[in-house]
Amino acid sequence: MGIIIKDLTKKYGEQLALDKVSFSIKSGEVVGLLGPNGAGKSTLMKSITNAINPDSGDILVNDFKVSDQPIETKKMIGFLQENNPLYMDMYVKEYLEFVTSIQKVEKSKIDEIIEKVGLTPEKHKKINQLSKGYKQRVGLAQAIISSPEILILDEPTNGLDPNQIIEIREVIREIGKEKTVILSTHIMQEVEALCSRVILLNKGRIIADQSIEEFKGQYRSLEEAFHTLTL
């Protein structure tokens, strides 16, 4: 159970975004997906969620093959994209009701999720009235409202102030006790605080796949490891 990636390859024209990427993530792991801009992180995450089709290779989510059983695998995954697309003219609670209707989730879960991500004071506002930080919370709420077994978060604390970052980290930490989480971020402290393992991508290839403790044993910090390995 979990995620298995086998020889995943994706090209955009002449650019090789993913070059035979292979790894597995066990159920219940919280894994940091790191790499410089253009390393292939977004392509990898969108491939797992079946938002894009790789050119070759296989992706298995809890033993379901993404290419053959896209509906089944999508039901198991919650995804917060970096650009966090939302319906800006909807009210917060209205939007989450819309999400639950699509995902066939009980509407009774909405207030619980709103409280969990700290949206209670803003739940009757239109999304376009919210600060960037609260919009991120709406995006996180839609990602977790179906209680997915796998959660993929692309820069989840983007635009949040320091207090909000701490609050969202706590939410992710609680989720990570029960779910499989892939966290992509440029904030190394976030990775150290939340992840037990790091997969480091560069130019479409995995250049390191180790536990946080192994990185700390080889480098003075995760920042130094990142800088040294991606130069």
Rank of each mutant, 00 (worst) to 15 (best):
I110L: 09
L96V: 02
Q15E: 11
L16H: 03
V138D: 12
F64H: 15
S27R: 15
P121C: 02
S184K: 01
V66T: 09
D63P: 00
V138I: 08
H186G: 09
G118R: 05
L44T: 00
L96P: 00
L34C: 08
T73H: 06
S22Y: 05
I71K: 14
I172M: 07
K123L: 10
L160G: 08
A17Y: 10
D63K: 08
K65T: 08
E190L: 09
I145M: 09
Y95T: 10
P156W: 07
N53G: 04
E192T: 14
K123R: 13
V117F: 14
S101Y: 00
T180Y: 14
L153D: 04
K126E: 12
E213N: 13
S196H: 13
E178H: 09
D7P: 01
Q218P: 01
T180M: 12
L33T: 06
Q81D: 06
I207F: 09
G176Y: 10
E82R: 02
Q189W: 03
E224T: 06
V61R: 01
Y134D: 12
V117I: 15
K93V: 12
A17C: 12
G32Q: 08
S42L: 12
E29Y: 03
D89F: 02
T228D: 15
P148M: 05
K216N: 13
Q210S: 12
K75Q: 11
F23K: 07
Q136M: 11
G204F: 06
E115T: 05
F226I: 00
L80P: 00
Q103T: 10
L222Y: 06
Y91C: 05
S47G: 11
I77C: 04
V92S: 05
L96K: 01
A225Y: 03
P70A: 08
E174F: 02
L8P: 00
L33V: 11
D63L: 03
I166W: 02
P156Q: 07
I113Y: 12
K11S: 11
E167T: 05
G28Q: 03
I206V: 15
D68L: 12
V99F: 00
G35F: 01
V21M: 00
K107N: 13
Q210T: 02
G28K: 01
A193T: 06
L130K: 04
T180D: 14
M76T: 00
